[in-house]
Design a protein around this nucleic acid. Structure first.
Lengths: 191, 191
DNA sequence: GTTCTTTACCTCGAATCCGATATATATCTG
DNA sequence: CAGATATATATCGGATTCGAGGTAAAGAAC
């Protein structure tokens, strides 16, 4: 079915939510500041509804426009469990964009440019991934999580990132040193 | 432009290759045994050709059907460099499929089922990602790599995976212990 | 010599997701 | 009260990628 559909069903299993709320939760789940695109979310909700995975009840908006409160159905729960047991294969391009970029980074001959790219990777890794939220939409910090599994999941996610950030810092320092050297002494490198 | 296009251009920057060869290199690059789909690769090559990023020369096949040897153009090199400097934003669903799955794993109440899912994640992480190849298509082991950057990249990639594998092993053991307990003592849990 | 596997390429339909664009309302700012 | 901002939903075209299926030719297995 695709990750977004399952993320939606996963959230709705806990309690009903409306689209706008889901948008921000999914975005945070994926460790991004930028929220998921409207043009992705709302058609996906519609498809899930057509597939009988959720029902909607129009409720007055708390602040502005009316909301469509979404509730998961038995079919939706079944689909979620089926996916958890047997997830879609991870596509070749998923999970690997950054490593592909790093593998070919040497084609950017200028060490200063390479360093800038690594700094961007570092920034990305430094964005905290917030996997768990309460009903009010407040992030639940790792130490307050109920299950040891969830606690461990957030810790490992963070430590994996810190591990790579560490390495990046070393590489960036080395590249900047080299860039400084070549700019100072090599006429050919000067822009 | 998308990762696959850039991976193709990245490989072609080193030396000309034909589609079939690219297929296996890209697959290994992404840490997958399953090669990239023909229906993805060949249309992508065609698009790159139409965009002036590569040229093709038909050469006799070494074994069977004739090959289309692909060579990168100046335009292709420019596009690659442009992408390295300013890569496409990573989509919300990229890089996060597994974490989303793990975040909702508790909806699979049965610890034995949870353990099976974690074991699959472990297997995926255990697949070595081979980022660098020589002209003959032979993988270059980390210790034989020329640049310290490439060496470090492969080491960090491996160590990041080992870090998570370690955690997974602990979780799997705990879940199996719990599953064994409930199977032995709880009638409701049996098959 | 027929079949099987490997090499090598291609087309088509479908799924997922994005960005641009549009709509409407409530609240806050000046 | 005019305009900006946040809430809330929706459509449309496009990019990327997959899977199923088809073509063809060389060499190995039986």
């Amino acid at each position: 079915m695709g990750m977004l559909k399952m993320a939606i069903l996963g959230f709705l299993r806990d309690f009903p939510l409306h689209g706008y709320d889901l948008k921000n939760r999914v975005a945070a789940l994926a460790g991004h500041v930028r929220p998921i695109a409207d043009g992705t979310l709302y058609p996906t909700i519609k498809k899930l509804e057509e597939a009988g995975c959720l029902t909607r009840r129009t409720a007055p908006g708390s602040v502005a426009a009316p909301r469509h409160m979404l509730e998961i159905t038995q079919e939706g729960t079944d689909q979620l469990r089926r996916w958890l047991r047997n997830p879609e294969p991870v596509f070749i391009t998923d999970d690997n964009k950054w490593y592909v970029l790093l593998a070919f980074l040497h084609h950017l001959d200028n060490p200063r440019e390479q360093s800038i790219v690594l700094a961007r990777r570092r920034e990305y890794l430094d964005q905290p991934t917030q996997l768990f939220y309460d009903e009010q939409g407040r992030p639940v910090p790792p130490e307050q999580l109920d299950s040891p599994f969830r606690k461990g999941l957030m810790q490992i996610h963070r430590s994996v990132n810190l591990n790579e950030i560490d390495w990046l810092d070393g590489q960036i320092a080395e590249l900047d040193r080299r860039a400084g050297y070549t700019v100072a002494h090599g006429a050919a490198e000067r822009s």
